[in-house]
Design a protein around this nucleic acid. Sequence first.
DNA 1: CGGGCGATTGACGGTCATCAAGCTGTGTGG
DNA 2: CCACACAGCTTGATGACCGTCAATCGCCCG
Lengths: 236, 236
Amino acid sequence: MKRSIAGEYCEQPCTDCTVRSHAICAALDEDALRELGSFSHVLQYRPNEPVFSQDEIVTSCYNVREGVMRLYKLLPDGRRQIVGFALPGDFIGLSHSDRHVISADAVGPVVACRFVKRQFSRFAEERPNLLRRINEFAARELAGAQEQMVLLGRRSAEEKVASFLVTWRERLAQIGPATAITPLPMSRQDIADYLGLTIETVSRTFTKLERDGVIEIVQGGIRLTDAARAEALAAA
Amino acid sequence: MKRSIAGEYCEQPCTDCTVRSHAICAALDEDALRELGSFSHVLQYRPNEPVFSQDEIVTSCYNVREGVMRLYKLLPDGRRQIVGFALPGDFIGLSHSDRHVISADAVGPVVACRFVKRQFSRFAEERPNLLRRINEFAARELAGAQEQMVLLGRRSAEEKVASFLVTWRERLAQIGPATAITPLPMSRQDIADYLGLTIETVSRTFTKLERDGVIEIVQGGIRLTDAARAEALAAA
DNA sequence: CGGGCGATTGACGGTCATCAAGCTGTGTGG
DNA sequence: CCACACAGCTTGATGACCGTCAATCGCCCG
């Protein structure tokens, strides 16, 4: 696959950012925003384009503005575990290690702000507001990771899929308007690698849920026809 | 089971704390340490004694000083997933939610410092040093959680057990002197619930690893007789 | 010595992975 | 405009891995 270079676009001011209220940037006042903007770049990534890879030296951190990114780890033999999907407002770069411990790439088209890590750290260093906001994000991520461990370790295939659909829907609802159809921009393979299943099992489980009247499979997503039952299956 | 009350002990000054250099407290100077000490309490927990439970209101956060705690989540039907073991130096209370999202209890005898969360937050609020240290801890926890997701989602039983033993050994090595025998204070059931397996599978896998000359099972732990092979099995 | 708990071992079966074939929709070129 | 190719998804057949159920062992402690 040809590695394409991310396109850059205008230096759109942070003060106009549409995801600011959901992002770490909400902790910053106008002045700080302007300073942050002075060393940030807005980048575009194409579908499946890598953003960074495991073991690479960390040079930047990112705010997702539009689109979805998958975050994953690979085992030497090629097995893949997706550890999360990053949505608009999410911050990537909590890690303090000097090398990336995960890889990230764009699922569909993605727009993200990039900060040079060194500059960002210096910027954040003496801003307790921002540091606390970052803590908050880290804590939320950690809680999500713990929930995912339960899913991976203790839930059946059907519970995994139902749980994923419910959780995904809730996440989308938090950042945008509720819609009848829940879009699933990622592939079945992505879902499988997120849930610790195979693509076949995911596909079969979708079909089963549809047969049971819990969901309806539509182009590019699903319609949750019986949310109550889905939540029951998710065994919250 | 009778719920026993944690015993309290002397207000040992933080300045003498043996785990300080590994704990978040390393970010504090003498003055700050004294202030922190003024609202901390050292508590003892007995084996299997609960420290806090999922859904309870969060009132405190903790530093582990001695012993091991298990952190876990329960599903309504009783299935349990252990999301981590906390060792001396670990900080518990990164979560920002007002209710605990996990439960914690002592594996063996445990000594921990408790801080009233509200006071601790106020204390940390304007100390960038401490906030950054907490960030660092959160990032490390998150990286660990991601590694655990790979284990849970993509590794076989044998890989899980080998990986657990290697990682556990490394963690112990970081906080104390290396020993020939790697102690395993937690039960087989705990290990199973940590690895997303059943106790029988864990037991069988231990036996297999011993037959294969990778480990030797001893009272209260194991001896890693072939670390290289264990690491290969762990498929880092 | 006997009770009890944790760990081990064995027999069996279910869930989900594997392997393989067919399907669907989209884009491409004649 | 239709045939074709291709990629992603679905469906089917089979079997392995690990869960379940059950019995036994070993050890500690009363």
